[in-house]
Design a protein around this nucleic acid. Structure first.
Lengths: 194, 194
DNA sequence: CGCAGAATTGAGCGGCGTTCAATTATTTTA
DNA sequence: TAAAATAATTGAACGCCGCTCAATTCTGCG
């Protein structure tokens, strides 16, 4: 067949990513299937490969969408913020992971071959989240410590991420921790100096 | 066939886990194959399932072995420790993850169905690592703060883990961080108070 | 020796990612 | 408008996967 609908190639790509994201969020990375995505958008497996070129590229596109939604969620929560903005940011981080557990986990479950790095469009989405958080850390830091803002934000993101991982995968439950967001807020406050 | 070698059932199980661990460490969770493990130990796929009952149980046994090796690595490094023991612990954490990247990642890549929790033998291995670290945190904490030792250790483990994840999966590379162990040591020192 | 029980096999099932020659639709050209 | 060129889509085929289980083979005991 030839062109079948009024979707441009770019539109079709978006439709597939949208359906793929939903499928991922429902079943998780381990049970994700490109064939199932094809079925959901009314195409066949061959078309998926024509559009994305590889399975990895499809996953990357889906995870990129998840990152974008995550960034939007953070931004929205920070706009509504009253009180401690860093606390809001932490809670928004946890909230997204809890609400979209499978899609969120897929970001980390999927790994590119060791010798290839993600495309710039993907890296930009990671940095977009970083940039949002850097602004908050910077605002919380006294003038004398402004130069630390970026390295400190990298470290604090990793700190929050670690707590979020342990909260989501049951490690904290095993060890008797039942208020991970509170624990990480303590760490963050120590680091920025109250 | 019937019993074919002089392995008891328990010995066979250990042999399979050992081969499975090596296979996992070589190819990683995404390319791990129970059939391949069977081939390596000179049995067939059916025997794997007779011994472990399920794929999940096999993975759990292999990840359990990785946890035990990890604990041993930490313990050995702490025995040799000169100078800052918390720093040694952090470096040992990173070192194991770097040396056994695939096996280490498999601990987190694999997830049981949401409604089941890991067997006690597995949880005990997680706690064994926790116990090792608790002792170090306790030693670094003044008398007045001893009651915090356990919750603080949970939080610091998560902190170190988050940095380790970002170091291993390329997130830190994307964000320009090139000394993750140093960064997390700063966080840990802030938390225990120098 | 014969037999009960334990251990092992491997073909078969449905599903996966991946490829690509064949087919069908659209667009361009004459 | 008809034919030729291009673009999009298909789906069977391949080799692999986890998983099952009737059939087979080995072992030890009476």
């Amino acid at each position: 067949m030839g062109r079948r609908s009024d979707h441009s190639r770019a539109e079709l790509s978006e439709i597939i990513v949208e359906a793929g994201y939903r499928h991922m969020d429902e079943v998780g990375f381990a049970h994700f299937s490109a064939r199932e995505v094809a079925k959901r958008v009314g195409y066949t497996i061959g078309t998926i490969y024509n559009v994305f070129g590889s399975y990895d590229a499809l996953i990357l596109a889906i995870n990129g969408r998840t990152l974008a939604l995550w960034r939007d969620h953070l931004e929205r929560r920070l706009q509504q913020a009253q009180g401690d903005r860093l606390q809001q940011a932490i809670e928004a981080y946890f909230e997204f992971a809890a609400r979209h557990g499978h899609a969120w986990a897929a970001i980390y479950d999927f790994r590119l071959p060791e010798d290839v790095s993600p495309p710039d469009t993907y890296q930009a989405k990671v940095r977009a989240i970083f940039d949002l958080v850097v602004a908050e850390v910077r605002a919380a830091l006294p003038a004398a410590r402004q130069p630390e803002a970026e390295p400190l934000t990298r470290s604090l993101l990793a700190t929050v991420h670690g707590h979020c991982v342990f909260a989501m995968n049951g490690t904290f439950a095993m060890l008797g921790e039942n208020d991970p967001a509170r624990a990480v807020l303590d760490r963050v406050r120590e680091a920025v100096g109250q």
